[in-house]
Write a protein that binds this DNA or RNA. Structure first.
Ligand SMILES: [Mn+2]
Ligand SMILES: [Mn+2]
Ligand SMILES: [Zn+2]
Ligand SMILES: [Zn+2]
Lengths: 135, 135
DNA sequence: ATTCTAGTTTATAATTATTCTAAAGAGAAA
DNA sequence: TTTCTCTTTAGAATAATTATAAACTAGAAT
């Protein structure tokens, strides 16, 4: 993704392309593979890869702004920290319980033959498959 | 589950059957249907249903003791609080995003036809299916 | 360009969930 | 009983996250 697209993405989401948002967006979205992170890991990586300084609150604010704008999704992982995901398509995950890393599984790679019908008055919103890995 | 069995369960797990553990165990395990809870919800329910007082730390300690002894499992749910589950079998969940409640799905009710093979050097530990519900 | 304004960043405080601490209390072995 | 170890408890400490309010800045208006 090009810098110009980053600007468009922000503007179209009602987010001013500030220095911090652009830097974080470039770091998150200018990559080929999907990226899973926590606020803490992102903070450390940004410190390494950029010269700018970011208040932790700004990282929280920016990540939530991206999430609310639909540019990031959230993944449920056991543990206290919230995981975010640059892959916003419907997809599934391997979770490596040794390295604590998520690995994407494309929705097409999982076929479910049978699931129970939703309880009365409820509809199925989506189905998430989470595959725990061990060595 | 009878009180005598509660005692056995505790003893066999290396847990002394103290007043608090027995009361919590009776509340959690003497029921027909599975029960999903957070520490906070358990605390409130115990306050309602029993006359004893429990320090919050005791509820944390006791629930973790039961979990470590294999009498409770933990479920990943979006949000900050940890969910526990009296169902310790392999099973899946509906999650009602309106009421924030978990509903059990027996493993036999889900048939997965195709999943990707585990990454190199890794094995699949278990597969969790999480079905989000909406109205 | 300069001014203006709403939105943003920042440092710090507050909050929430959870864990730790150390003193007092209670099972249970001897 | 006496003793010993484990447990409970209140409160402090920690960790992740959110709130606050002052300083700053992007973009619009002048
Ligand atoms: Mn989680
Ligand atoms: Mn969770
Ligand atoms: Zn993903
Ligand atoms: Zn369950």
């Amino acid at each position: 993704m090009k810098k110009i697209d980053i600007f468009k993405k922000l503007r179209s989401s009602g987010l001013r392309p500030t220095k911090q948002r652009v830097e974080i967006a470039k770091f998150l979205f200018e990559r080929d593979k999907t990226f899973h992170f926590t606020i803490e890991s992102l903070d450390k990586l940004l410190a390494k890869k950029t010269t700018s300084r970011f208040a932790l609150a700004t990282i929280y604010n920016t990540v939530h702004a991206f999430k609310n704008a639909g540019h990031l999704s959230e993944v449920d992982v056991r543990g206290k920290k919230t995981y975010f995901d640059t892959n916003i398509t419907n997809h599934h995950h391997f979770y490596d319980n040794e390295t604590l890393e998520l690995i994407d599984i494309d929705a097409s790679e999982v076929v479910i033959q049978k699931i129970p019908k939703a309880p009365n008055g409820k509809k199925i919103k989506n189905v998430e498959v989470f595959i725990n890995l061990k060595n």
